[in-house]
Simulated scan of single mutants.
Amino acid sequence: MDWSKAKTILIIAFIVTDILLGYMLFSSEKIVEPTVQQDFIEDALNLLNKKNIILATEIPKDIPYLNTLIVDYEKNSTSTLNNAFFNGDGEIQSDNENLVEIVHESESLLVLNKKKLLIYEDKNYVNKFPNLDEDEAIKIATKFIEDKKFDTSDIKLSFIKKENNTYYIEFSKLYKENYLENAFTNIQVDKRGVKKFERQWLNVKDMGETPIYTSTAPKAILGLLSMEEVYGKTIKDISLCYYFDPEKHNYLEEPKAAKQGKTDPAWRIQFEDGYKVFIGEF
């Protein structure tokens, strides 16, 4: 007998057996995860129903994880913003680290929190869009973002409502198909066009190599039971997101001063009225 050949065959057989056993063990661990089983989910929903919290979406059943991101705030110079919003014709009434104010006719732009938060307003009441509907409001908001030279490849329309003849439109940031919070671009559109624009955005600098796991969605939503502010609301979306909390990054005395930090995986729970809750192991 060719013992060398026989040993090789045995080694290969053991390797294949180990791979199969590992796969079976991994599959078994996924199957027996108790918090994604139907009984657990039904119990969780019953508890939410007792608080009049209604589910109007699917509950993800994956074992959730995301890699850490290193992010920082989007910031622009005064001249860049003046050119983007007013073709350089705005009057700069204040320009320091904490507050920039640019005014042009009926329009104004405030830049707050060390150039991280933008607030634009137009007080001109000219009726430009007499037949405004939701689709047109979204087009107007999107074009405004593009005209002001902001990238639209990483945004997603995440909420819209109409109230008192004004459309309130929220765009959220995406990174590799997952939301990146807290970043937002909120726009109010009425018959004049864009009457208000608010933006605080995050840029991704790097991605960590190690996946970070968090609680499953059925387990995470039980955290809503202690939040009285969501009683009586309807859940519209449950999705895993990258969550940046500035208070975690050595800025406890002045959390809005955080310049850069790491994200954590979290469940982003959005309700029908636009209210959002983030649940993770922070």
Rank of each mutant, 00 (worst) to 15 (best):
S79C: 12
L109I: 06
E105A: 14
Y125Q: 00
V100L: 07
I140E: 03
K116Y: 03
F129V: 01
L99C: 13
E121A: 12
E121T: 10
T78Y: 02
N82H: 10
D133I: 05
N76F: 09
I119S: 11
T78C: 08
Y73S: 14
L99F: 10
E97I: 14
Y125G: 03
D72T: 09
F150H: 00
F150M: 07
G90Y: 09
E134G: 02
E101D: 05
K75L: 03
L132G: 05
T142K: 12
I92L: 11
L99N: 06
F129W: 06
E146D: 04
D72F: 08
L112D: 03
E74Q: 10
K148C: 05
K75V: 10
S77C: 02
K149P: 07
N127P: 01
N124M: 00
D147M: 06
T152F: 03
N113V: 12
L118T: 03
D154C: 08
S94W: 07
L117N: 10
I119T: 08
F129Y: 06
K139V: 02
K148A: 04
T152P: 00
F144R: 14
D72W: 06
L99V: 09
F129S: 12
L81C: 08
P130W: 02
D154Q: 09
K115L: 09
T80G: 02
D133S: 12
N76G: 05
V103Y: 09
P130G: 03
N131S: 04
D154R: 15
I102T: 10
D147F: 07
E107S: 13
E74F: 15
D122V: 11
P130S: 05
N82G: 11
T78A: 12
S79F: 13
E97Q: 10
T152C: 04
